[in-house]
């Protein structure tokens, strides 16, 4: 097949009058006038669509920004949880020896060192955590005075292996 490129016609319309393609490619002669109000309706619909597209674009941008920022926020929230040192031993920790106490004192600064040393001796009975810490470090008399009488009954059964606590309690009960 020889391909003839329409170089000779200035507009490329190389159609003879008897060419059946004239029927196909003739410009549309039929015109349809728009119904009344069609122009305004189309304009309204186009502006609504533009708004919807803008809103969708903003939403997608926000979602992407949120997803991008999420790893940073999660990293930021992690560090405070990890370095938290273990607090006092569990509630039955009366029986534990005084070993945990020296650990925080050298590591923390002077301001923190003050808090465990002096105030808990007086304010100890108010909160259970401090009371338990004191039960380990302080003299047994203070501790036993602040504790209710029912509490010691549970610990000997649970911690029967620890012999040191039993005599102190007996002393307290006697006193």
């Amino acid at each position: 097949m020889t391909t003839r490129i329409d170089g000779d016609e200035p507009d490329g319309r190389a159609l003879a009058d008897d060419d059946p393609l004239v029927v196909v490619l003739r410009p549309p002669s039929e015109h349809l006038a728009p119904p009344p109000g069609r122009y305004e309706a189309i304009r309204r619909r186009a502006s609504r669509r533009r708004l919807a597209r803008t809103a969708a674009g903003v939403g997608v941008t926000c979602a992407v920004a949120l997803l991008a920022a999420l790893p940073f926020t999660s990293q930021r929230s992690d560090p405070p949880t990890t370095p938290a040192p273990p607090l006092a031993p569990p509630t039955g920790g009366r029986s534990a020896p005084a070993t945990p106490v020296p650990v925080p004192t050298p590591s923390t600064g002077p301001s923190e060192r003050r808090t465990p040393s002096s105030p808990p001796a007086r304010t100890g009975p108010s909160t259970p955590t401090e009371g338990s810490r004191e039960g380990v470090t302080r003299a047994p008399e203070d501790d036993m005075a602040s504790r209710p009488a029912a509490e010691p009954t549970a610990s000997p059964t649970a911690r029967g292996e620890m012999p040191q606590r039993v005599p102190t309690r007996e002393v307290a009960e006697r006193g």
């Binding site: 549309p28 015109h31 006038a33 728009p34 122009y39 189309i42």
Partner: peptide, 18 residues
């Protein structure tokens, strides 16, 4: 936009009608 609509809509709609 209004001018474009007036000039092109009848023609385009007529073409679609075919």
């Amino acid at each position: 936009a209004s001018e474009l609509f007036a000039a092109l809509y009848p023609r385009l709609a007529g073409w679609c009608r075919r």
